[in-house]
């Protein structure tokens, strides 16, 4: 994986574009199912995914990252905003409309135990996309499935085995083989390694890496583990309570994060280096993440932010590029060029 040169947004090479994406899940109450509120899972996301890159999406539970993944793969229909894939608006396509696009957009799930049907053989599972799309690959389905199994590091002899015969890591490889069956352009992986042991995690991370090089895939990798995200991503989007708070390339994010939340998040991760334990300065945030049913006004992070001022409670900071390719939504950004703290407000 290489880090592409920093480019301005909406470059011509965007594979997927998301504008003002919103997803609210209504909460109903009583006999009449009256709507009394909504879980604002995703509330106005704008970003793009460039051809051949890996976009990492990171955030804590309830930040809406998984919902976002399901929206851009159109497993969910957005409440508002637009998702454009290769120039085509797919925000409200129906099942039939999405079918041809299912070849190009695939998803890998977190739990390798529940995402594979225990009654189907590996051959049936990995070959299912062919059947669904009514495609017969050159040389037959079986041969192609065996090629895929080899591609993900399994043996072609595993064709007739059942999922329960495999370990967690191997099951995740089966899930990856299934996702790759139709030669997708975009693969969205939701916590692809978080259910796996450390030593197995590395195998799968490396596999995803190799496949990207070999097949020219574009990845959106959603994870809560900042170390994994740092390792796999070219660009990283940080989410908090349904909003994007920061979006930039990996080096800038980890070396000079601008959003206080990103900074706190990075400082909170335990570092596997006992000598640093005494040296490092850790920003301890107060409390837990607020509920996405009634998110705080203004900047959603202001309730836990040590830099919050009056303006943060009333005005929502827009996501603006403070440096080329480094977008932040904050009234008082850290590491801003030339003390541009107030510029963000104006922007």
């Amino acid at each position: 994986m290489t880090i592409p040169a920093q480019q301005a947004n909406d470059g011509p090479e965007a594979l997927l574009t998301v504008e003002g994406l919103v997803k609210h899940f209504p909460i109903t109450k009583g006999l009449l199912r009256r709507q009394v509120g909504a879980v604002q899972a995703v509330d106005g996301l704008t970003f793009d995914v460039r051809n051949g890159e890996t976009l990492g999406v990171v955030g804590e539970s309830g930040c809406g990252k998984s919902t976002m993944g399901r929206l851009i793969t159109r497993l969910l229909e957005p409440t508002g905003g637009r998702v454009t894939f290769q120039g085509k608006d797919i925000s409200h396509l129906g099942v039939a409309g999405m079918r041809p696009l299912r070849r190009d957009i695939q998803m890998i799930f977190q739990d390798p135990y529940s995402s594979l049907n225990p009654r189907h053989t590996v051959g049936t599972i990995v070959g299912a996309p062919f059947k669904l799309q009514g495609i017969t690959p050159e040389g037959g389905v079986k041969k192609d499935v065996q090629r895929l199994l080899e591609l993900v590091g399994l043996s072609p002899e595993h064709y007739n085995r059942y999922p329960h015969e495999f370990s967690g890591g191997q099951r995740q490889r089966i899930g990856i083989a299934r996702a790759l069956a139709l030669n997708p352009k975009l693969v969205v992986a939701d916590e692809p390694v978080s259910a796996l042991d450390v030593s197995i995690q590395a195998q799968v991370v490396n596999l995803l890496d190799d496949l990207q090089d070999e097949l020219g895939l574009t990845y959106v990798i959603i994870a809560h583990d900042l170390s994994v995200i740092r390792h796999v991503s070219d660009r990283i989007a940080v989410m908090y309570l349904g909003k994007l708070v920061e979006l930039t390339d990996r080096t800038s994010l980890y070396t000079k994060p601008m959003h206080p939340y990103t900074k706190a998040l990075l400082s909170a991760v335990p570092v596997p280096d006992p000598k640093r334990r005494t040296k490092r300065e850790r920003i301890l945030l107060k409390g837990d993440v607020p509920s996405p049913i009634s998110p705080p006004s203004g900047c959603r992070f202001h309730t836990r932010c040590w830099k919050a001022t009056e303006v943060c409670t009333t005005q929502e900071p827009p996501l603006v590029a403070l440096e080329p390719g480094h977008q932040v939504a904050c009234h008082h950004p850290e590491n801003a060029p030339g003390g541009a703290g107030q510029a963000a407000v104006a922007g």
């Binding site: 450390v198 995690q201 991760v269």
Partner: peptide, 19 residues
């Protein structure tokens, strides 16, 4: 096997083979 948060890694991870 462990991806590091505290440094930029360009090398591949070195996983333990097998299960």
């Amino acid at each position: 096997s462990m991806p590091r948060i505290d440094r930029e890694q360009t090398e591949r991870l070195i996983p333990v083979k097998g299960s």
